[in-house]
Design a binder for these strands. Structure first.
Length: 327
DNA sequence: ACCATGATTGTTCTT
DNA sequence: AAGAACAATCATGGT
């Protein structure tokens, strides 16, 4: 190698610019705890690196995501696992709300990156919401925004610190980071499937190959809400108590179909992720006629009866709240 | 070792 | 009435 090692990204961008003539986005003034340009995070199920750039966010996972600041309505710091109760400690989440109502939840950002991110985002004059605030004081965040002096301690950090239980080993976490953030070379050659990953300056988003039939104006996405409304007491974003004795719900026809067909799809496309297989199953299901769906519907109806019976037995015998309680 | 997540559709439940 | 939860699945990763 050469002695320019410290400037690899500059060389790379220069070469790229020379070859393509395209505008090259370079790392910004943001620095993480390790003097890196990005922080580790995960979007959806993919984890990658979140680059806070001068004019946007750049997430570099399997499918790269570029979020420009001008698209952002607000950002929101959330304690990691806002929904889960047992989650805690070293991580927090960054929710980026776009003006077109899209949401990106960057999860699993190390807690010690919070300060850097907050200062950087504050410096970019992005709106910071604080819905995850445990205290009822809304609007305190904006106040913090106006006093973005680095010496001022913001309440979020304190809270997150508290929730983390101030383990002083956070400094040690750095060496735990196997891949250094700055060296997380964007040049990873694993483009075996990212053939269509063209990130031109256009507003191209959501390059889902499906739905080629017609435009889809109302993007009815089943998005989960990041619950964050708890007050000072216990919250119930999602009552996750499932009594082990409680009967399971009836299996929907589509689920029976999935059970039957999933193996088939997987054998023909062994490398598809489970979620991708689910997409394919959905597409296939939609194309099926009622006759084709009928066997699965019948199975579902049978299971519905099963559920009805077990449910009745459960209520009379072991339901919580009923005096029964015989295990 | 266990558990949560995501992605799908349909059914049930809750408000 | 309308939306949220939940059913099977499983690779993945954190605890």
């Amino acid at each position: 190698m050469y002695n320019f090692l410290g400037l690899i990204h500059e060389i790379f961008s220069t070469v790229l610019k020379g070859l393509s003539g395209a505008k090259v986005t370079r790392p910004s003034t943001f620095r993480s705890c390790l003097d890196g340009y990005a922080v580790k995070s995960s979007l959806k199920a993919e984890d990658g690196l979140l680059y806070p750039l001068e004019k946007g966010f750049f997430f570099l996972p399997k499918p790269p995501t570029l979020i420009l600041h001008e698209e952002i309505e607000y950002v929101e710091f959330e304690r990691h696992g806002a929904g889960g109760a047992s989650m805690s400690s070293h991580y927090f989440d960054l929710l980026v709300k776009l003006k077109n109502d899209q949401e990106h939840l960057f999860r699993n950002i190390q807690r010690n990156e919070y300060h850097n991110l907050f200062n950087f985002i504050s410096g970019k004059h992005l709106k910071i919401m604080n819905l995850g605030d445990g205290q009822g004081r809304t609007g305190g965040v904006t106040a913090v925004l106006q006093s973005t002096d680095d010496d001022s301690v913001d309440p979020h950090l304190e809270r997150i610190k508290n929730q983390a239980g101030n383990d002083e080993s956070d400094e040690e976490d750095e060496d735990f980071v196997a891949e250094k953030e700055d060296s997380g070379s964007p040049t990873d050659d694993s483009d075996e499937e990212g053939s269509d990953a063209s990130l031109s300056g256009g507003e191209k988003e959501k390059s889902s190959k499906k739905e080629a039939t017609s435009s889809k104006p109302p993007p009815v996405k089943r998005m989960r809400k990041a619950g964050a409304d708890e007050g000072s007491e216990k919250k119930k974003p999602k009552k996750k108590k499932k009594d082990p004795n409680a009967p399971k719900r009836a299996i929907a026809p589509f689920m029976y179909f999935s059970k039957a067909e999933r193996a088939n799809i997987k054998s023909s496309n062994p490398e598809l992720a489970t979620t991708e297989i689910a997409k394919k199953l959905g597409e296939k299901w939609q194309k099926m006629t009622a006759e084709e769906k009928q066997p699965y519907v019948e199975q579902s109806q049978a299971d519905k009866q099963r559920y009805a019976e077990e449910s009745a037995a459960y209520r009379s015998a072991g339901a919580p709240g009923t005096g029964g309680g015989s295990e």
